[in-house]
Simulated scan of single mutants.
Amino acid sequence: MIKYIDSYDFFACQLDNQRCRLLALPWEDVLVAHILPRLPLMQLFDLQRVSKRFRALIRLFFTKRTTFELVGHHVPKVAFFSLVKDNNVLRKLLLESCSSWLTDNDLLPVVSRNPRLQTLDLSGCNGLTRHALVAVSLTCVHLRHLAVARCDFVDGPSLRSLADHCGELRSLDLSGCCRLTDATICYLAKKCVRLTFLSLAVNENITDESVEDVAKNCRGLEHLDLTCCLRVRDVSIRTVAEYCPKLQSLKVKHCHHVTESSLEPLRKRKVLIDVHPPPRRDRLSLAVDCGPYVNIQPLSARLLPSGLNADPLRAHMNGPAKVSDPWKNHPSFPPVMPHLQSPSHLLTLHPSCLVLALRCSSSPSLWSL
């Protein structure tokens, strides 16, 4: 396996002391099938300039190639045409890196020669028009994966054409396609019932009506992206939970009307959600602005001062005391506080029922119940 090319002379010279030449290897069975696919794209372009035979080899490789993933590279228009001009067996074409110059005139000839295309990524290609998407839908009827994120040309008529002719769609990315409305998404959901991935992110036109129709018709849905769909509410999320048992991930970030009440059933099913659950409060604390730290503990009989019995204490617990308070003048305890209340004002603590252990501190006080 060749991992890196140091110079063009490496291919022009004989290998292993003139016992073998690279071009003497079988082209289609060895070079095209196993060696050239491991080389970077830019080196393949440079390799064409070594000799006429290498140029013929690279052209054969591009002609037989079924996948072009032009991601992360700025591909000039001339290079793109040299890649695909003779190819009619494409199955996967990712053109996001061509978004700066790609137009209908550049794309339509490629689409017309490759009717068996199954995966197409046109994300951000705003040089195209609705006619390009209509042409794709009419030609590539076996299309399974389509990404048109951030494409302003995607509108109701072009998406309806896609839904009518590409019923085998499994994945559809419509993120940022702000011209789409509920009516179009509902039409799509009824036609493309095999969808497993759908993104409607960053579209303020999407409401509960769209989400509910998608859930009821696309019951094999596994991934749903509703990020920044500001009009989506809990009612549609509950419908998704009810009708989509295979759901694996749900994105509802910045959907301010979606609350934990609709997300909790999905969390119990181990569905990945991009919104964290609210924190739980395991203990109740009451902050007091002034005073020392106070720990409140139940009174036990062994803590009573000598000479006192529990009968006056029981009298205080059963109701208003008519006898004198045994703690009133006892020197071991500070002055009593008549009542302590919880934040809900439902709990009243009487000093005769508690032992107060005080610890002075300069920081704000905390009553722990």
Rank of each mutant, 00 (worst) to 15 (best):
M1P: 15
Y8F: 13
F10P: 05
R21E: 14
L22D: 04
V32F: 07
A33V: 02
R38V: 04
L41V: 09
M42C: 09
D46G: 14
Q48K: 13
R55M: 13
F62Y: 13
T63E: 15
R65E: 12
K77R: 15
D86G: 03
N87H: 03
K92P: 00
K92I: 05
L95F: 04
D104W: 04
V110G: 09
V110M: 07
V111F: 03
T119I: 13
D121C: 14
L122G: 09
L128W: 09
T129G: 08
H131D: 15
V141I: 07
H142R: 10
A149W: 01
R150K: 13
C151T: 05
D152E: 12
D155N: 14
D155G: 11
P157D: 01
L162S: 04
H165M: 04
R170H: 12
L172F: 02
G176Q: 04
C177P: 12
I185Y: 02
K191R: 15
L195H: 00
T196S: 10
D213Q: 08
C218R: 00
D225G: 03
C229I: 05
C229Q: 07
R233V: 08
S236D: 03
R238Q: 14
V240M: 05
E242H: 12
Y243D: 00
K246W: 10
L247Q: 07
V258P: 12
E260C: 07
E264M: 10
K268Q: 12
L272V: 11
V275S: 03
H276N: 11
H276M: 11
P292K: 00
N295Q: 08
I296T: 06
S300F: 14
L304W: 08
G307T: 07
G307D: 10
A310S: 15
D311L: 14
M317I: 13
G319S: 06
A321T: 10
S324F: 08
W327P: 05
H330Y: 10
S332H: 08
H339Y: 08
Q341T: 11
L346F: 05
L347D: 01
L349F: 08
H350V: 07
S352Y: 03
L354Y: 04
A357C: 11
L366F: 01
W367T: 02
